[in-house]
């Protein structure tokens, strides 16, 4: 039991920090670069991503294990996963709107942006590829999303400060953000000695 928990914790640290979803795997770059102008919105986006990825990796895991494997149609995983994720996001949005007004107001705007986010599909596919069980898959999904949130909040913090700097004209906008992301990626490389 204890060994299992230890394994899960190590896996979580690995997914969140060592192979960070944005900075070393380049998944979910669009929201990472697009919704990181303010720390507040970045935190909102991060929370929505944690919510959706954790849920989606659970649902995708269950569907893979109890539907695709028994029917021997694992090769349909890409089609099934993308549809499941799109439907799931829609359902989550409707559910929150109906029953959890507060949470909906906080996350609502970000949810449609996540539907075709490659990080969500990426985590579901990684879970299958690495043959994780359902619980391990959910932990991996959660940790990956936490990694995303950490990096988007850091980037937003830096960008808020950067707004007051005198940046050469051609580097304003995207280029300086990408340079910042590159430096963050170097910093995150340091975590590779962690495990």
């Amino acid at each position: 039991m204890l060994a299992q928990v230890k394994d899960l914790l190590l896996l979580a640290a690995g997914s969140a920090l060592v192979s960070n979803v944005v900075l070393s795997q380049f998944l979910g770059l669009c929201p990472f670069l697009g919704v990181s102008k303010k720390v507040e919105t970045a935190a909102g986006m991060g929370t929505a991503v944690i919510f959706v990825i954790t849920l989606a990796s659970g649902v995708a895991g269950v569907i893979y294990r109890f539907l695709l494997v028994p029917l021997h149609i694992q090769y349909l995983q890409t089609i099934v996963f993308i549809l499941v994720i799109a439907a799931l996001v829609q359902f989550v949005e409707m559910f929150l709107k109906r029953y959890m007004k507060g949470l909906y107001e906080a996350l609502g705007v970000y949810l449609p942006l996540i539907t075709t986010n490659c990080a969500v599909l990426g985590v579901a596919l990684t879970n299958v590829q690495k043959e994780y069980g359902i619980l391990t898959g959910i932990v991996n999904g959660f940790a990956t999303a936490v990694g995303f949130t950490i990096s988007i909040i850091i980037l937003a913090g830096i960008r808020e400060k950067m707004a007051y700097h005198d940046i050469p004209k051609p580097f304003q906008g995207m280029p300086i953000v990408l340079l910042t992301a590159g430096l963050m990626a170097i910093a995150f490389c340091g975590f590779s000695g962690l495990l």
Partner: peptide, 12 residues
């Protein structure tokens, strides 16, 4: 990984 960001930064 960081190199990818630097190359893209130069490109943009």
């Amino acid at each position: 990984a960081p190199g990818a960001f630097f190359v893209l930064a130069a490109l943009t």
